[in-house]
Write a protein that binds this DNA or RNA. Structure first.
Lengths: 176, 176
DNA sequence: AATTTTATGTCAGCCTTGTTGACATATCTC
DNA sequence: GAGATATGTCAACAAGGCTGACATAAAATT
């Protein structure tokens, strides 16, 4: 992946006080904007999920299953970072209500390969479009390079150990 | 599709495909990156809060009270968008453990003006610095204009009705 | 002065979604 | 065949949301 242009990458090392201030002065603006943005970002889906008797936990599961047909339980647990008991509760409801189906693995028959049903895909898409509308509105108010900057920023907020994994999930397998 | 006002029904036909793609193709990358980034962003404070017997809810309350000494209950409820009962549960604990103190309002004695104690400010600052470290790491991997782009983006993700309010909270009262 | 509205506090109970621990089953691997 | 692995399930608990009802003091209105 393309690194930042070296000339822009570094700070001015001449003044230690600058570095200290950067390290020690809290970035209240970005901390708080992140909170408010996330608060509103998840509120759109919430309203619709309510109509189906689902919550945010159902949304996360449905989203990733819809995006990656054939996802296994273990992979899903790794993405969501919750316990299998927590996952199972919401997954069971999604299966019972016919939004997700669970097929036995072919190569390893212990695994469950999760797939969204047509109904499941519809709901997932509906919710994704809602959030996309909000995103597009925000991007359209910004510069053309904003999207790349925002993606890069969000990616680097993620724990370094996970970054490659997330990149694969989000942008698909590398073509190398 | 139901009737629309004819003149507004469609844009210039030549650009319809562009607009449709923008409106209809989900921005999966930004949706998912936002999820993963938020997941890790809140995980740093979580570890420390645990040592104090606090959770995320306590963090939010302490953060905004520490940032805005003299905040009232009503203002805090408006920021957090939770019920007073939910707020009261965590606020009571923060007051009992001497991280926040509640003073009677001077002009309106029904109000409670919330202030962080020295201990409260210390913890709030510690957590903010932790998150700032993550933010700075992410910004340093990006272009110099990234910070402005990210701020702008996050701000525009917020509900339009709230945007001015949040701007005031985050950037302070305008000098006009 | 009496009434109404507002800001806050509190009790009681419920829901969602996270947790831990223990145990069961089928299947794969060695 | 033995052990490891992927998943399912039961039970209990905790955090942090919610609603509804009711209480109090102080401000605002009439």
């Amino acid at each position: 992946m393309p690194d930042a242009i070296p000339a822009f990458k570094q700070q001015i090392p001449s003044q230690n006080s600058d570095r200290d201030i950067l390290a020690e002065t809290p970035a209240y603006d970005l901390i708080e904007l992140f909170f408010f943005a996330y608060r509103d970002f998840v509120s759109d889906p919430d309203r619709i999920l309510d109509e189906y008797g689902f919550g945010r936990a159902h949304h996360r599961v449905l989203h990733f299953v819809s995006r990656q047909p054939g996802l296994t339980i273990a992979e899903l647990l790794d993405i969501l970072r919750i316990t299998k008991q927590s996952l199972n509760r919401v997954l069971k409801e999604l299966i019972e209500k016919d939004f997700i189906e669970s097929r036995m693995g072919t190569s390893d028959r212990r695994q469950r390969l999760l797939h969204a049903t047509p109904q499941g895909h519809d709901l997932a898409l509906k919710l994704a479009k809602l959030q996309t509308r909000r995103i597009m509105r925000a991007l359209s108010a910004a510069s053309p390079e904003a999207k790349a900057a925002v993606s890069q920023y969000l990616l680097c907020l993620i724990d370094p150990d996970d970054r490659e994994h997330v990149k694969q999930l989000v942008f698909g397998p590398e073509k190398t």
